[in-house]
Simulated scan of single mutants.
Amino acid sequence: MAAEPARPRRARPRPTEEHVETQDRAPAHRTSASKRKAGVPSAASAMRSAAGQLAQLLGRTPDSVSSLKPTEDGWQAQVEVVELERIPDTTSVMASYKVTLDPEGQLVSYERTRRYSRGMIDRPT
């Protein structure tokens, strides 16, 4: 088999002064990453922080984070924790905690808002 000849590389055109000026201007829209303030955690980081800090306080590993939303003062998360393990596990007692984080991702407060069995399904009201 014969090897294909190498294709010549195309040289990139150099930007003109006019092009350079327009690159220096800020775009009309910003991405979410550029909107974030320095030191403010991302959603994924805030979620890990809420679960980790609550685990340290309760001495139990969180099962999941069921909601996370940004607030003016940081983040608010709903964290689900197994409070009492039972067999079968669908009868285990779960608790839902509202966790509030400051803008740096540090836990400010937490509150148990609900207890339920793991097998329980929410029904529309």
Rank of each mutant, 00 (worst) to 15 (best):
A2Q: 14
Q23F: 09
K37N: 06
P5V: 15
P15H: 07
S32E: 13
T16L: 09
E83G: 06
H19A: 14
K98G: 14
K35R: 15
Y97L: 12
A46H: 02
R10L: 09
L54D: 03
P5A: 14
A28R: 10
S64M: 05
R9Q: 09
A28E: 15
G59K: 02
L68E: 10
R12F: 10
T100Q: 15
S109Q: 12
I121S: 04
S109V: 00
R36N: 07
A50I: 15
S92M: 08
T16M: 10
A28D: 11
P70T: 09
V40N: 04
P41V: 05
P13D: 12
T100N: 15
Y116C: 01
R60K: 15
V65K: 05
M47R: 15
E18M: 07
A44E: 10
Q106S: 14
I121F: 08
M120R: 13
V108K: 12
I87Y: 10
A28P: 04
G52E: 08
P124G: 00
A33N: 06
R115D: 05
H19K: 14
D73Y: 03
E80N: 09
I121M: 08
Q78K: 13
E17K: 12
T31D: 07
A2P: 05
P15G: 00
S96H: 11
S96P: 03
V82L: 12
E72A: 15
R25M: 09
A55N: 06
R118V: 00
L107F: 05
A43E: 15
A95K: 14
A43Q: 13
S66F: 01
R14V: 00
A38N: 07
D122R: 14
R30N: 02
Y110R: 06
D24Y: 12
R114Y: 03
D102S: 04
A11M: 04
Q56L: 11
W75L: 07
A77L: 14
I121Q: 14
T125W: 03
A50T: 12
A11P: 02
G52N: 08
R9C: 01
P124M: 02
Y110M: 03
A44I: 08
A3S: 10
S67W: 04
A33Q: 10
D122L: 14
